[in-house]
């Protein structure tokens, strides 16, 4: 396995218990940007499936390279697929929503992962990316702890994620809170581009969502 997958597989039983909880309200507020009903969601780098579990989407698939994590997700009754974010094994236009909850910084080539996300999402579909803010003290500590257990994560700023989203054809928005940010991208529907391109003006916009 590449990148951090081996480490995660080794620590998966512990990680499942210690991982910070996922706030359903924050995930929902990101998914609300979708311009279509969400029937199928991919939780990419989803580990034991906490992100997917925080939603009530009918068809939820956890995608991760680490088999130990996926077994934990399967025990929760979630569908699972072992894969890398840069090489998604899903057909074009096959999902309505994609989550990256604290996972994009573990991906070796995050740009490629976002390009693949744009490919699998249907028009009007949404990607929700949760990341620790690496410029804050809490984020700094999390990344330092990660390095101690042998993870090779690359901290991402909200600005860099917004640029990635935009270059893959998403209309991005960034929701800030105390320790983390949530970047949301919506796939343009056909015809949207000519009618209005005002959505991209919300980059880095001041929508505030508090963690509980």
């Amino acid at each position: 396995m590449h990148g951090d997958a081996h480490t995660f597989d080794a620590i998966s039983p512990l990680y499942d218990r210690l991982r910070p909880s996922v706030s359903p309200a924050v995930i929902e507020s990101g998914l609300a940007f979708a311009e279509r009903p969400i029937e199928r969601l991919l939780d990419i780098g989803g580990g034991p499936g906490r992100g997917a579990e925080a939603t009530d989407v009918p068809d939820r698939i956890v995608v991760d390279p680490a088999p130990g994590m996926l077994r934990a997700a399967a025990q929760r009754g979630l569908a699972t697929t072992r894969a890398y974010a840069e090489r998604l094994p899903f057909a074009d236009d096959s999902a309505d929503a994609v989550l990256f909850v604290d996972s994009l910084h573990h991906v070796d080539a995050p740009n490629q992962a976002i390009t693949e996300t744009a490919r699998v999402l249907r028009p009007g579909g949404v990607v929700v990316i949760r990341e620790f803010d690496p410029t804050g003290r809490f984020g700094c500590t999390m990344f330092a702890l990660g390095r101690i257990v042998g993870l090779h994560s690359q901290p991402l700023t909200s600005e860099s994620v917004a640029v990635m989203l935009e270059s893959s054809g998403f209309a991005p928005s960034v929701l800030e809170d105390r320790f983390r940010f949530t970047a949301v991208g919506v796939v343009e529907r056909e015809g949207d581009m000519s009618e209005e391109d005002g959505q991209s003006e919300t980059i880095g916009g001041g929508v505030l969502i508090q963690d509980e």
Binding site: M1, P67, T80, T81, R82, A83, Y84, P89
Partner: peptide
């Protein structure tokens, strides 16, 4: 060819699969 292991489809590209536990 991609194996299904313990009910989980393994769709890691073959060149990125080396040394992985089943």
């Amino acid at each position: 060819r991609y194996p299904i292991e313990d009910g989980i489809p393994n769709l890691l590209p073959p060149d990125m699969r080396e040394g992985t536990p089943a």
